[in-house]
């Protein structure tokens, strides 16, 4: 397992307490899982994605990731409507292990953009991981 200082945590995106990342692209927010999450899960073998057009509240479960050992829920860090899902992950879930940032999971049109700024910066996230 990676030490905290070995994790790849880009400084230009935000993080959630549940180990998702969020990146603003115009008026859309891309969501994925952090390097910490993929490292903890181990090999991801299945990704359950939501329907495009469905809406979720902040911190609501929007899908699941499966490693060989466990099922893990993924939570939406901002309320909004799913405008796109990365369907490449359905055939190649291991992409999340290979590069959890290039391989986003969903794109969300947020209902309240202020929620984005309430997420954790890289420094806040690292501080949380260090407990």
């Amino acid at each position: 397992m990676k030490e905290i200082d070995e994790l790849n945590l880009p400084g230009d995106i935000y993080y959630s307490k549940e180990h998702e990342w969020a990146a603003k692209e115009g008026d859309i927010i891309r969501i994925g899982i952090s390097d910490y999450a993929q490292d903890q899960l181990g090999d991801i073998v299945f990704v359950e994605l939501p329907e495009t057009g469905s809406s979720f509240e902040r911190d609501e479960e929007f899908g699941t990731l499966e490693s060989v050992k466990a099922v893990s829920e993924i939570y939406l860090p901002v309320s909004g409507e799913i405008v796109a899902v990365n369907s490449e992950l359905e055939d190649a879930p291991e992409l999340l292990n290979e590069d959890p940032y290039a391989n986003w999971i969903v794109e969300v049109r947020p209902t309240d953009i202020d929620q984005y700024d309430e997420l954790l910066s890289k420094d806040d996230y690292v501080a949380m991981l260090k407990g």
Partner: peptide
């Protein structure tokens, strides 16, 4: 060898190595 370790049966044991569970299986 960077194994991901966890408790099993009172021992600290490797769950998987860097090649990952799927490759090992």
């Amino acid at each position: 060898h960077d194994a991901n370790m966890a408790e099993f049966g009172g021992y600290d044991m490797p769950l998987w190595y860097p090649s990952g569970t799927k490759a090992e299986h």
